[in-house]
Computed example of a mutant assay.
Amino acid sequence: MPGRPQPPTARLRRLAAELLRLRKTADLSREAVAEQTGINKATLYRIETAKARPQARTLKALLELYAVDEDKRDELTVLLREANQQGWLQTFSGELPDRYSTYIGFESEAAKLLTYEALIIPGLLQTEDYTRALIRGMMPDGTDEEIENRVAARMQRQQVLEGGQLRLWLVVDEAALRRSVGDPVVLQAQLEHMQQVAKKPNVTLQVLPFEAGPHPALLGAFVILKFGELGAPDMVYIESEAGDLFLDDEPSVERYDNTFEHLRATALSATASVEFLRRLAREIP
């Protein structure tokens, strides 16, 4: 039985974007490239949309056709060599839903995450007990093994916050903070944990209080992923029961960038947010 396909990495997405740009700069259609290289037009489409990883000889043929200089060839060859690196996610292969695996693969490569969460504590801030209680509630028919695998994966995800390479900016709605997940001890520990994570120099946490009223993100949570020096296009991730969305077209990313700017301008300051969490933790009976 064949294994499930691996989600595209940020490196593969950058390689795809570069090959598309180079073809357009050379003013060649896919049909023209197919005629001159023998590369199937459908295969070229899959390569340029990061749905397929090109073979080394295919990449060489394309770069020769596009008259790419040696330095750029070396750069893209390295991208191809590293395009399938999945990191720690391979440990959980086959145990996590495809859509979740795809997202956390991108998350592990991002340089910056801008997160708005409306209903639950964001995964990168969750305690183990909170995560376990949350997943049990969301997967009432899940086995103990399935639930523990999800818990372990979420705890592993949080390693991206260590070392300071990832810049994380979160806006969390008051509704997420007040939702009862687990018993009062679990919730209180969760709120205290958030206060500690907020002290990390690479983390900015803001609370969006009820009194802020209507805002542009009332329809739901989202994450903007920015890949920095990797050069892959920025991406917006939206999770839903109907299926997850990954948007990387410029108008969509710009729209969500603007929405996030509005949210962080409306939310409490980082200092006031920590005080809000402290006060809320004291209110738990």
Rank of each mutant, 00 (worst) to 15 (best):
His262Met: 15
Leu263Val: 12
Asp234Glu: 08
Glu229Met: 14
Glu241Lys: 15
Val253Glu: 07
Phe246Val: 09
Pro209Ile: 03
Phe260Val: 12
Leu219Glu: 15
Met235Val: 00
Ala198Met: 08
Leu191Ser: 13
Asp257Cys: 14
Arg264Lys: 15
Asn202Ala: 03
Tyr237Arg: 02
Leu208Gln: 07
Thr204Leu: 02
His215Thr: 11
His262Gln: 13
Asp183Asn: 11
Val186Leu: 04
Phe246Thr: 08
Gly213Thr: 08
His215Gly: 11
Leu219Ser: 14
Ala217Val: 01
Leu245Thr: 14
Val186Pro: 05
Val253Thr: 07
Phe210Ala: 01
Ala212Glu: 07
Ala217Leu: 06
Ile224Pro: 00
Pro233Thr: 05
Ala217His: 03
Ala221His: 08
Glu211Cys: 06
Val185Ser: 04
Glu239Tyr: 09
Lys200Ser: 10
Ala221Thr: 13
Asp234Trp: 00
Ala221Phe: 03
Val207Gly: 10
His215Ala: 12
Ala265Lys: 12
Gln195Lys: 11
His262Cys: 14
Pro209Gly: 09
Thr266Asn: 09
Gln206Phe: 10
Pro251Lys: 03
Ala198Trp: 00
Lys199Val: 10
Asn258Val: 13
Phe260His: 10
Asp244Lys: 03
His215Ser: 10
Val197Pro: 00
Met194Val: 03
Glu192Cys: 07
Glu229Leu: 14
Val197Cys: 06
Asp244Val: 05
Lys226Asn: 13
Glu239Val: 13
Asp249Val: 12
Gly213Ile: 04
Ala267Met: 02
Tyr237Ile: 04
Met194Ile: 01
Tyr237Ala: 02
Val223Ser: 05
His215Trp: 12
Asp257Asn: 15
Gln195Tyr: 06
Leu247Lys: 04
Gly182Ile: 03
Asp248Gly: 01
Glu254Pro: 06
Gln196His: 01
Leu268Thr: 00
Glu241Gln: 15
Ala212Gln: 00
Ile224Lys: 02
Ala242His: 13
Ala198His: 02
Lys199Gly: 09
Leu247Ser: 00
Phe260Glu: 11
Thr259Trp: 13
Asp249Tyr: 03
Phe227Ala: 01
Ser252Asn: 11
Glu241Asn: 15
Leu205Thr: 08
Met194Gly: 01
Ala198Asn: 03
His262Asp: 14
Val207Met: 10
Ile224Cys: 08
Glu229Gln: 15
Ile224Gly: 06
Val203Trp: 01
Gly228Gln: 07
Ala267Cys: 09
Gln190Thr: 09
Gly182Tyr: 05
Glu241Ile: 15
Val207Asp: 03
Asp234Ile: 03
Ser252Gly: 02
Gly231His: 04
Gln196Arg: 05
Asp249Phe: 00
Leu218Gly: 13
Val185His: 05
Val253Asp: 02
Ala198Lys: 00
Pro233Cys: 06
Glu239Met: 11
Gln195Arg: 13
Pro184Ala: 05
Leu205Ser: 05
Ala212His: 08
Asp234Ala: 04
Ala217Tyr: 02
Gly243Lys: 10
Val203Asn: 00
Met194Ser: 08
Phe246Cys: 02
Phe210Glu: 07
Asn258Asp: 15
Leu219Lys: 14
Asp183Ser: 05
Gly182Trp: 01
Tyr237Met: 01
Ala265Ser: 12
Leu208Thr: 06
Ser240Glu: 13
Phe227Glu: 04
Phe222Tyr: 13
Glu239Gly: 04
Gly243Met: 09
Phe227Val: 10
Val236Phe: 07
